Structure formats: C-alpha cells, structure tokens
Computed example of a mutant assay.
Amino acid sequence: MITDTHTHLYSEQFDEDRKEMINRAKEAGVSRFFIPAIDSSYTDRMLDLEKNFPEDIFLMMGLHPTSVNENYLEELALVKEWLDKRNFYAIGEIGIDLYWDKTFLQQQQDAFRTQIKWAKEKKLPIVIHCREAFDEIFEILEEEKGNELFGIFHCFSGTLEQAKKAISYNMKLGIGGVVTFKNGKIDTFLNQIDSKHIVLETDAPYLAPTPYRGKRNESSYITNVVDKLVDIYGKSFQEISEITTQNSKEVFGV
C-alpha cells in the first residue's frame, strides 16, 4: 500500500482522463489519496471527486497562501463554515508563499495563524505550504508549538537544519518529485533523517519526478519517488511503502 499524501486530483489538468489516471495509480499500488484545498473556487470539484471515488479520497480544507488577497477574510469564513459542517482529514494546504508576491505577507501570516488555531481546536493536522518563507513559517510554528500542533511540511525542499527544525514542531516531511531532481539537494542529506519522519506525496499535477520532469505529474509517478528513497535509505520498495504509509496514518488518523 502506497499513500499519496498530497495530490490535486481535482485539477483541470486531469479533466480529460481523471478516472484512467486514478486507475493507473491504483495499479501502481497507490490506494490512498489525500486532497489539499486551495480556495472556495475548487470546493465543488473536491466534493465531486470524493463523491466519484469515495473509497480512495480523503479531503482537506483550508486556504492556500497564494489565494490570500484582499478578500481573504471572506475565504477564511468559508473554510470555517466547511470545517464546522463536516469532517476533513487535515487543514491544508496553508502557510506562506513569498515566491510570487510579498504584497499580502501580513494577511498570509494572519490566515496561517487562524487556521492553525482551528486545527488545534478540531485536533486536526496541518499541511504546510512554504515557498521562500522558512523563517516566517518557523516564527509562527514557534508561537504555536505544542503537542496539539502536528502535521506535514508539504514538498519539503529546505536544508538539513531546516528539516530538523520542522520535525521538532511535530511535522513529517512531505517527500515528492524534488528528491529525484539533480539540483533538488535534499537527496544529499535525507539519509540523515530517520524514515519515520517522512511521508510520500506527488503534488500532482505539479513537480513530476525524473524522468517526467517538466510534464504533467500524476499519482502513479510516486513509484519513482519510492525508487529514489530505496537508494537513499537502503531499504526495499515494500519497506519504504509500508513505513511512509504508517507515518501518514499517524498524521491523518486513518
């Protein structure tokens, strides 16, 4: 059993072959798909995905940092409304992204803090999006740290020191296609991180692993990530699959 802890299966990029793409993933051994939210414009697509694949799909709810703008309070209100209405498996993806635009940094910080507090209240994990914002993310995690704060540092691409710091806040490291990139760097130190701290992800349709880099990613390609981790940890394909799925169960409780 392989678990893809982060895949945008509702993306428009899968509209032509979604069922076939999911079946390819299942044939490759992927049996659990955790689906991060972006903003309210994708909620209906997420719910339709769950309706069509009820045995395989596990939804999150949250406001993505790149969707934080002038109306972020309205978007947060919708997130809270959904969290109070039904069960989700995590609050995510949430965090701070300073790669494209720093205009709404303060609003991103506020949205991140707010959603962390909701996660604590509901005893849910958080799934963190961090792009060029490690210092800003860690500042807030330091404020909020405690046993009730836990989750996944999605698409981890930092240094060994940053990896250890993330783990210190009860975060697993989400490992995906980046670990297969020649310039990804995390493959140079990941063997110094105990495998109990990592989970698998694709972030499909983004960040396809080698040899598909630059093309549309899909959940079946997670096997290329496992292959790379086999080399890094010196464990078998089955061991990596079992360890990372068990780690995901510790986070999501399912």
Rank of each mutant, 00 (worst) to 15 (best):
K249E: 09
P36V: 11
H64E: 08
K120T: 03
F33K: 06
D44H: 12
D227Y: 01
R32W: 11
S248Q: 00
S31F: 03
I140S: 03
S168N: 14
T66W: 04
Q115M: 12
Q109M: 11
M61F: 09
I57A: 12
A208M: 07
S157G: 14
H64D: 07
Y206A: 00
L49V: 15
D101N: 12
V178W: 05
E144Y: 04
L78N: 04
K249W: 00
E250I: 03
F150H: 09
T159F: 11
T244S: 01
K123T: 06
E16P: 05
D135Q: 15
T159V: 11
E139D: 03
L47R: 06
Q107W: 00
L200G: 11
P209H: 01
E27R: 12
E27A: 13
I240T: 02
N224H: 07
G151P: 12
G158T: 12
E218N: 02
T210Y: 09
R213P: 01
I128S: 10
N147Y: 03
G92L: 14
F112K: 08
R45C: 04
A37D: 08
E93H: 08
F104T: 01
E121L: 09
E144M: 12
A119R: 09
T223Q: 02
S241G: 04
K215P: 03
I140F: 06
D56W: 00
K165H: 07
V30M: 04
P36D: 09
N247L: 05
V79S: 03
E143T: 04
A77M: 09
R113Q: 14
E70C: 05
F134L: 08
S157K: 11
Q108V: 02
I22A: 01
K80F: 13
H129W: 02
I152Y: 11
P209I: 01
F34D: 09
E74Y: 09
T159E: 11
G62W: 06
P54T: 05
R18L: 15
L124P: 15
I94Y: 04
S168C: 11
M21W: 00
Y169M: 14
P125G: 10
I137E: 02
G234N: 02
T202V: 12
D39E: 07
N87W: 04
L59N: 06
T159N: 12
V79C: 07
V68P: 00
L173S: 14
D97G: 12
L173M: 13
D17Q: 05
Y72K: 07
P125T: 05
S67D: 05
K145P: 09
V79G: 04
A90T: 14
G214H: 01
P211S: 01
N87P: 05
I222M: 01
I243R: 13
P36W: 10
E20N: 08
S41G: 04
